[in-house]
């Protein structure tokens, strides 16, 4: 059984009459020790999915799903109190902007020790020793003095390391990294990615990596889900999906990477933008932008269908590679 199993998850915002579906019919599973990537443009529902799962939407979004289980526990029906015993302990999350994700009024040490106190009941010297151990685990130099430092005294890379230390404090089974390197310098990005991947291997935890950086996914992930406008457009193993993308959107996404454009003068782009609340097409959500669009695509919304190497949400998947007209 998968560690995390999501089936047909939808998240709606706004009024009952005029709802906006930020996530629609999303299926996702993550096994123990697996690295799964979620890619998509801004506003494609990547973060909202994770926030919904962790119960961080604070009653703003309405969450509907056929199944939402973590480690055998049904996250849809458990009480808020029960959920808090899982969140921060078995599922931990790190965020995009480490500089603002740490509370400026408390020392780094306090913020690490807080999780240990709340979830593991550690006290006194044991607590301090464990915090120091975590600081060293995430390779923070001069860890002992840094325990007393305030977040504003740390660089972005250091702050993200502290966030990772907080996340790993209770040995989570699943770590969700929501664009963990977007706000960092390129050199620091590589260090943080290495750190995350090493820690993942060492502890055999599952890592769910949310990003819009395809290169990162290609390098580290085992499986990947491509999201578009709140839906999973295509899902598959990394080598398969990167070599033979079958969804037109995935194909467009991959060909928009400069390295892939192979001598073409202009970078391939998909005209238009992700549909928002008021311009959602009645058919396939990609239909207004899709170069292969057919009449059926405009009127009917495709479901997700499994194939040999993964799953795709398209009536006319590109099993034989075609060039965009």
């Amino acid at each position: 059984m998968s560690l995390l199993q999501i089936k047909n998850l939808s998240v709606e915002f706004g009024s009952e009459k005029n709802p906006f579906r930020a996530v629609e019919g999303l299926d996702l599973s993550v096994d123990q020790g697996e690295i799964v990537g979620i890619v998509g443009e801004s506003g494609s529902g990547k973060s909202v999915t994770m926030m919904a799962m962790m119960g961080l939407l604070e009653g703003q979004g309405r969450i509907v799903a056929d199944e939402l289980t973590f480690d055998g526990k049904n996250l849809l029906t458990i009480s808020a109190r029960e959920r808090r015993k899982i969140v921060g302990k078995d599922i931990a999350m790190i965020f995009q902007d480490p500089m603002t994700s740490l509370n400026p009024s408390y020392t780094v040490g306090y913020q690490i020790m807080e999780v240990l106190k709340v979830h593991q009941g550690l006290r006194g010297a044991e607590l301090k020793a464990r915090a120091l151990e975590l600081m060293e685990l995430v390779e923070i130099p001069a860890a002992k003095t840094r325990l007393e430092a305030y977040p504003h005294q740390l660089s972005g890379g250091m702050s993200q390391r502290v966030m990772i230390a907080v996340a790993l404090a209770c040995n989570p089974k699943l770590l969700i990294a929501d664009e963990p390197t977007t706000a960092l310098d390129v050199t620091i990005q590589a260090q943080i990615m290495d750190l995350l991947v090493n820690l993942q291997k060492e502890r055999n935890m599952a890592l769910l990596m949310i990003t819009h950086d395809l290169a990162v996914i290609a390098e580290v992930a085992h499986r990947v889900a491509v999201m578009y406008a709140g839906q999973v457009a295509e899902e598959g193993t990394v080598p398969q999906l990167f070599r033979h993308p079958v969804h037109p959107y995935t194909q467009a996404l991959l060909s928009s990477i400069p390295e892939h454009s192979k001598g073409a003068r202009r970078l391939v782009t998909l005209p238009g933008i992700v549909p928002g609340q008021y311009d959602r097409p009645s058919g396939c959500l990609l239909s207004p932008r899709c170069p292969y669009v057919q009449e059926r695509c405009r009127n009917e919304r495709p479901g997700i269908t499994a194939h040999e190497h993964g799953a795709v949400r398209c009536f006319y998947p590109l099993f034989e590679k075609k060039e965009a007209p």
Binding site: M54, G55, D97, L102, V115
Partner: peptide, 17 residues
């Protein structure tokens, strides 16, 4: 609305905390 309040919630802390 600050990110660090979201972090606090993601830590599984009680609403009072």
């Amino acid at each position: 609305r600050e990110d660090y309040v979201r972090t606090a919630r993601a830590k599984g802390l009680s609403p009072a905390r």
